[in-house]
């Protein structure tokens, strides 16, 4: 737990952002588990990658700035990496899935559950 007392202007928004980010990430992964077809499963995890990660990173920026008594923005680096890399993975997985489906000659509407 935090030992030092942090100012309220950092704690209040950081708490709200952490709760929001946690909910977004959880919903994204629950969607990954719940959806019936593979192409539907592609969509929910990008919730965690965008809003979930964004909220937690902003919260981390606020807390580390308050701890260091100066603006600390190195979390922006992770934001840049996530924003540029997670769509690339999603696109490649999508293309791989399409490629494998064509290779197996599945009917397009086949429910891929089980």
């Amino acid at each position: 737990m935090t030992d030092t007392v942090l100012p309220a202007w950092a704690l209040l928004p950081a708490s709200l952002l952490l709760i929001l980010g946690g909910i977004c990430t959880l919903l994204g992964s629950v969607g990954l588990l719940r959806m019936k077809r593979f192409y539907d499963r592609m969509h929910p995890p990008s919730m965690g990658n965008t809003l979930g990660a964004g909220c937690v990173l902003i919260a981390s920026m606020l807390i580390s700035s308050a701890l260091a008594h100066r603006p600390v923005i190195h979390e922006l680096l992770i934001t840049v990496f996530i924003v540029t890399t997670s769509p690339i993975t999603a696109m490649l997985v999508m293309r791989a899935a399409l490629h494998r489906q064509i290779a197996r000659r599945d009917p397009p509407g086949k429910t891929d559950s089980g």
Binding site: T2, L6, L11, L12, I19, G22, S29, V30, V56
Partner: peptide
């Protein structure tokens, strides 16, 4: 205010653990 922040940390940790188990 610290209590709220500690609650938020615990809540976020729970969410992330559940999310990781879903993904696993």
């Amino acid at each position: 205010m610290n209590a709220l922040f500690n609650f938020a940390l615990g809540f976020a940790q729970l969410c992330f653990v559940l999310a990781m188990s879903c993904a696993a």
